[in-house]
């Protein structure tokens, strides 16, 4: 199984070379796009990791997750995933910050790290996209978009939790 991704990379490179793609410059062009992303990510990470860090060190986060434990346990959600789930619709960078916090604390292959990864991958930054897309063309009446988009992200989270449990037990 672990060979699938490297083999896929070789196949892609071979196919690209066959199609006379200039592989090196195409890679550079693509990788360059990671820079603005990382540049945008750093300040947001600083803000969110500061806030999450001080919340955790103060014991407020433990108190909150402890307080919510009966609720989260009843619906089968690990309370440590709450910051990620709540931040996801608001900001992609903030959600990545919450996930990288989980990775540093518990490791990417822990149950909470795996489920967090699925949740991040399966949902989208709804409010930002809505504001940007509609704002850019001056739409004021959004009709059924907001409820529909909210349902979509809710289903994403629910399905993400369900499949995580099926796959990772």
């Amino acid at each position: 199984m672990s060979a699938v991704v490297p083999i896929g990379i070789v196949l892609l490179l071979a196919y690209a070379a066959l199609c006379r793609v200039r592989v090196f410059s195409a890679f550079l062009e693509g990788a360059e796009r990671a820079l603005p992303l990382l540049k945008k990510l750093l300040p947001c990470l600083a803000a969110m990791l500061t806030a999450i860090g001080v919340l955790r060190d103060s014991g407020a986060l433990d108190a909150l997750t402890g307080f919510l434990r009966p609720v989260t346990e009843a619906i089968g959600v690990d309370a440590r995933l709450l910051p990620l789930i709540l931040l996801r619709p608001l900001s992609g960078s903030a959600a990545i910050a919450a996930l990288s916090d989980l990775f540093t604390e518990y490791g990417p292959d822990s149950a909470v790290g795996m489920t967090g990864s699925v949740l991040l991958g399966a949902s989208e930054t709804l409010l930002y996209t809505l504001a940007l897309y509609f704002g850019s063309v001056g739409i004021r009446k959004t009709r059924f978009t907001v409820p529909l988009a909210l349902i979509a992200s809710f289903v994403s989270v629910a399905a993400g939790l369900l499949f995580s449990r099926l796959f990772f037990g």
Binding site: V21, A26, F27, L28, G30, A31, E32, A34, L37
Partner: peptide, 12 residues
């Protein structure tokens, strides 16, 4: 992102 840059240049 680099690999996706290569992918984008192919007919895929």
């Amino acid at each position: 992102m680099g690999m996706l840059g290569v992918l984008e240049k192919t007919p895929l």
